[in-house]
Design a protein around this nucleic acid. Structure first.
Lengths: 243, 243
DNA sequence: GCGACAAATCTTGCATACAAGATGGGTAAG
DNA sequence: CTTACCCATCTTGTATGCAAGATTTGTCGC
């Protein structure tokens, strides 16, 4: 059953599987994560699944509803605003603290932007979602500060969940252009400008959300039945299910 | 602090106990945290202790050495620099993003600075350590962003561990004055200046460390036997134990 | 006295068992 | 037909048991 470096490989793989699932928008907010199912999927006992869930809960990625189950978080509008505020603070502060862009860094940014462009051309939405978040992580990686990288990775995961909940439609091109502008400022060595552009960019994304809209508890079923997405009017209408 | 149900109270109390122990410098870096001992101390089984350790590990506060035990982290010099860099980025970014100081905020800051002063006068070192870290958390709390508060709380815990490892002596008054200057700038509404002062303050603290000195693996025993603290020469001398 | 080896002991890693609680379906009463 | 209630089922919460490995101690040989 176990082949190579079994412990660590499996240990981190549950966490990673969930996180990458979220980063690529394959796992929706509110998704239920059953301990038993994950345990059999990964061929381990519930103990290790629970440990993974505990870690993910600490990272703000899943929540437990007592005796009911584990669920991927569905950030409230308030939380969503805090996540974006936190990202603005950290990303702008990070850019402002940078002093120069190495050749490697320049190459990394170029490669990433090229990937974004390719994904847009290909219309690969999952890949695009992942890349759009990754751009900001790449910048953090340039700083070499792994602590900030980890923090931003988790915030990015939450950002994607927020998008899935509140974003009416996804302006990939707009985000891509924002990234291009930030990268350009960095190449010029104008990190202050890059920081301001980053704040603008995040503002733009946040403004694109409809945070007045309540998350749709029927989204999964709606999707499964190929019904049209929830309209603003419908979301404000009284619902039978409790909020 | 929180009046939650008994279960959750016990659940979080292990985590909290460890963290507050660190924040008040009662728990030294490298302290071993035995699952069995904690389990009997808290009157629970090892399961819940393990879960707490997993959470604390995710927060960068403890580490597990496989089949050997759980230990409070002993940040390396590199990690220490990353922690300070992260704090500079976040705290400066946070202050820069602030726009006004409410009356409540002003009162909170005043009250805190008064406590610092009192602790200095009383020479209460544990309380002082806690307060010095708390100042920065108070500022984050003023922003109302609980996400950033939590991040900074954990970074502060690590900062204290770093101080215990690398700080030769503790210039409480210097830090206190730094805090006063930051608070003054905030009261003037000059958050940009406050941000710069904050960066300076953290630089000052980081400069006060001796990051070339390796952590002393015998510190605990040395302390218990009332031996004099490790000298720089001794720390560079070859040791029998592996680094 | 000193070093090497081996067993005893202590540690975590992981699985399993059982208990408590929530949910949903079925049934009976109105 | 609707509503209320109860029980079967499924979920997590927690404890416990056993195994694997690391450390330490005790012993033997030199």
């Amino acid at each position: 059953m176990q082949d190579l470096s079994p412990q660590q490989n499996v240990q981190t793989s549950i966490d990673e599987a969930v996180v990458t699932g979220i980063l690529s928008a394959r796992i929706r907010p509110g998704t239920r994560l059953s301990e038993n199912e994950l345990a059999s999927l990964f061929g381990v006992s519930r103990t290790r699944v629970r440990e993974a869930m505990m870690r993910l809960e600490q990272r703000g990625i899943v929540k437990v509803s007592p005796r009911r189950g584990w669920f991927v978080v569905e950030p409230s509008a308030e939380e969503a605003m805090m996540v974006y505020a936190a990202r603005r603070v950290i990303e702008a502060g990070l850019l402002r603290s940078m002093e120069e862009l190495t050749d490697d860094g320049r190459a990394t940014l170029h490669a990433h932007l090229a990937e974004e462009k390719a994904a847009i051309a290909a219309g690969d939405r999952q890949r695009l979602t992942c890349l759009m978040g990754d751009f900001h992580i790449r910048i953090a990686e340039l700083s070499g500060n792994t602590i900030l990288v980890e923090i931003l990775r988790d915030l990015t995961a939450r950002t994607i969940l927020i998008s899935l909940l509140y974003q009416s439609d996804f302006h990939a091109m707009q985000s891509h252009l924002g990234h291009c502008r930030i990268a350009a400022a960095m190449e010029e060595g104008d990190f202050l400008k890059a920081a301001e552009l980053s704040v603008e960019h995040l503002d733009e994304v946040e403004t694109g959300l409809d945070l007045t809209r309540r998350p749709d508890p029927l989204a999964d079923l709606r999707h499964s039945l190929s019904l049209p997405p929830q309209t603003a009017a419908a979301s404000n209408a009284p619902r039978k299910t409790k909020p």
